[in-house]
Write a protein that binds this DNA or RNA. Structure first.
Lengths: 108, 108
DNA sequence: GAGATATGTCGTCTTTGTATGCAATCAGGA
DNA sequence: TCCTGATTGCATACAAAGACGACATATCTC
């Protein structure tokens, strides 16, 4: 997939979930949302790795907040979908919608 | 993703395309259809490997026809989506539709 | 402090994705 | 019939993605 922008399956999910929960969310929040939608509980390691990769690709922007102990358990790292990430999401969506078109009956 | 049924990104595409082109299609036909929908030209090797894996997982059924030289260049191996494959496709679709819901404006 | 809980990192392994190249098959013409 | 080139199937090798689990660090409560 060296073709620059192809999202892996899990990368796709993580990116989508990040878009849902909103800008500057932390990994635990993403994990919680993932759990709500899929039944599989992803390990934190998997999520962080994926976020790293998405970050390297420029699909998400991340920032670390060191000195803001506002509330209990405040995360140090938060993420948001970058423009390129949004583009990739749109692209995947269009592709799938196109492939599904005409199969509505078969696929429920 | 050892979780039995998770489709990889490309596996998903190949399975979907197989569903589109119809039961007992050959790899070249799938490749052609893939080209029509995605802009990336997958190599034959990639498609065959993916079909092998889908077959191992029970998502596609394949058969080899040896003695049917009906027409020019008739393929020897053809594939169809197995029930488990259809289930996996439905599942992926439901998941994505769920994650997209509410984001229509953002994702076009 | 001390213990419990929450958060982030990393090494390692398995699974997927991709490219390359060889072997077999087949069509069509010399 | 025997080349020749195109098509098809597959093995091999390797890169990227996904997953797990152990470890480290922080934070809260007491």
């Amino acid at each position: 997939m060296p073709r620059s922008f192809h999202l892996g399956e899990f990368e796709h999910l993580v990116l989508l979930v990040l878009l849902r929960v909103g800008p500057w969310s932390s990994a635990p929040v993403l994990i919680e949302e993932l759990l709500r939608h899929t039944l599989r509980p992803p390990t934190r390691g998997a999520v962080y790795r994926t976020l790293d990769r998405l970050s390297e690709k420029g699909f998400v922007t991340d920032r670390s907040e060191v000195g803001s102990p506002e509330r209990a358990g405040l995360p140090r790292r938060s993420f948001r979908v970058a423009p390129a990430g949004l583009r990739a999401l749109k692209q995947s969506r269009h592709l799938l919608l196109g492939l599904w078109s005409g199969l509505e009956g078969v696929l429920d």
